[in-house]
């Protein structure tokens, strides 16, 4: 059972309030029709499955109904940061994973 900091509610909440929404920072190609089948297939189906840092999207389903991003260590399950949609992660390498969940 994780505890997740919601950057909109500005509080740490129980995992049961959230639903996982997959890998973060996957933009929809602006011109889908210009994509080859292979490119479109990559966008649809291919996701990272890293051992270590993972940027992922969560939905605060029973709270503020906002989507936001989380940087999580898939080994320790430690959550290194939560950040709103449209922002970039500050924790991108294992080296600087020092921060607390906020």
């Amino acid at each position: 059972m994780l505890e997740i900091y919601c950057p909109y509610c500005r509080e740490t909440r129980e995992e049961e309030e959230f639903s996982y929404s997959g890998e973060a920072h996957i933009a929809r190609p602006p011109e889908p029709e210009a994509q080859s089948d292979e490119q479109w297939g990559d966008y649809l189906f291919f996701r990272k499955n890293p051992r270590g840092l993972h940027h992922e999207m969560w939905y605060h389903q029973t709270g503020c109904r906002r989507y936001f991003n989380v940087t999580r260590d898939t080994v320790s399950y430690q959550i290194l940061e939560s950040y709103p949609m449209g922002e970039n992660p500050t924790v991108t390498t294992v080296a600087n994973q020092t921060g607390d969940a906020r």
């Binding site: 929809r28 939905y59 989507y67």
Partner: peptide, 17 residues
Amino acid sequence: AAGVLAWLELWQQTEWP
């Protein structure tokens, strides 16, 4: 119902703010 609402919010919030 809940899934569709989350789906609408997803696209509005993440792709077409």
